[in-house]
Design a protein around this nucleic acid. Structure first.
Ligand SMILES: [Mn+2]
Ligand SMILES: [Mn+2]
Ligand SMILES: [Mn+2]
Ligand SMILES: [Mn+2]
Lengths: 232, 232
DNA sequence: AGCTATTATTAGGATCGGTTAAATTCTTTA
DNA sequence: TAAAGAATTTAACCGATCCTAATAATAGCT
């Protein structure tokens, strides 16, 4: 007589699976078992098992041996988690003085414990931000996400001016290194050189004393927009 | 090569058990199986099972058929959770506009997901508060708790002036009702009447338009200090 | 087309934290 | 002090989520 209304209380595991599958769908078609396993650091058979359960409750569409897709219901749940995660990261940085390299781990746990009300209060306190500290768009309450088409730094021609917009948030060391180069979302720079064969890119950050060399692997994960050259 | 340092990652259940046992020890000797079961809304055999596990890892001392006691290690862990819980409640009220009747449920979940760092940042942002919104003392980082000897409202003689200091925080409806009487920790009042046979207490809140009648059951959970009569 | 390497699933098992029903121990009362 | 009653523990079981080893399906290469 107390509970029983919402059977839609998802477990922590379930929420992380849905979020992972969402991420995989974002960056290329459907989500493979092994990709999910990699992302969650879990053995593939465990993923097979969870896929079965999530399909049974209508959160996933599973084509055996092919992969899995979120149903509308699954996508809604995933987007809710993404919103939570990104609001949390933003709040921790803006209101509690966290560094951008440490918010991800904290948000990864908190996202499962927080109520809708808390997230909306945080969002309100932040002025309903549209991007998280790493530049990722924050889904709205109703589940819409801005679709951004960014260019990886490695694909920007030499001579162009660009602005960093988004960075993967999962590796703290990587984030610290990026920051040490003077880079953050919003920072503009000019691409002054690029070596062939997956070589490094050289950039000149606006107002910086000297050029920075960015390795290929790193530059592949720096998502930018090309800024039209200023006239004059 | 990644983890393996701290085997002391306690589960959510474990943390709630330790906190419950701590509370029971606070208010009278040792913690009985059935009392723990009641507090956590769990069947007694489940508690027996958990007690066995927690004893094996040295968090509890168990005398079969008698009860349990926290070991120093268990007490440390429990106090850590109490600190988390109370800092969270305070933060939610002070910084995010929660009402005092809704913070408990939120803190009950969050306490298991936050890091030490987050709690200390919140405590800092609050100016290291000593009491939570319900008047309960917040343990220090090193695990000390202020020992308060409050008098339940039912035990205050008629004619005395007293100040409300602490209120049980678990029932939102009860909290809303208490607030509707004009009562909060810090509010002073005079006891102007008390009926025998567990009857209600009548109080006159300083600056209020009319007297309030407080039922016995409620008054038993309003913890106060008697204020020496002002001279003149 | 057939073989092989990769990927996914199934089989079987562990642990955790919960349940109910039955047995046991403690306590209280006649 | 013996029996009844209350509290506790044990037994047997379940679902969720993970694991490893074995099996099956798919995809890529000659
Ligand atoms: Mn993140
Ligand atoms: Mn997570
Ligand atoms: Mn509380
Ligand atoms: Mn809790």
């Amino acid at each position: 007589m107390v509970a029983a209304q919402r059977s839609e209380e998802l477990s922590r595991s379930t929420e992380d699976y849905l979020k992972a599958i969402y991420q995989l769908e974002e960056s290329g078609g459907s989500a493979q078992t092994s990709a999910i396993a990699d992302l969650l650091a879990i053995a593939p058979p465990s993923v097979s098992g969870m896929i079965k359960r999530l399909s049974e409750v209508g959160l996933l569409e599973h084509v055996p041996y092919k992969g899995v897709q979120l149903t509308p219901k699954g996508r809604r749940a995933a987007l809710k988690m993404v919103r939570r995660h990104r609001i949390l990261e933003t709040y921790l940085m803006e209101k509690l003085g966290y560094d951008w390299d440490s918010v991800h781990a904290e948000a990864e746990r908190l996202e499962h414990a927080v109520s809708d009300e808390l997230i909306e209060r945080m969002a309100m306190a932040l002025g309903n931000p549209r991007y998280d500290p790493h530049g990722a768009p924050i889904p709205t309450v109703s589940g819409e996400v801005e679709q951004l088409d960014h260019v990886p730094l490695v694909d920007i021609p030499v001579g162009e001016t660009a602005e960093l917009r988004m960075v993967s948030d999962e590796d703290p060391e990587r984030l610290r290194f990026i920051a040490s180069l003077g880079l953050r979302p919003g920072v503009a720079f000019r691409v002054v050189g690029r070596q062939p064969f997956h070589g490094p890119v050289t950039i000149r950050v606006a107002g910086a004393s000297r050029d920075q060399v960015v390795g290929y692997e790193l530059a592949r994960g720096l998502y930018c927009v090309i800024v039209p050259e200023e006239v004059g």
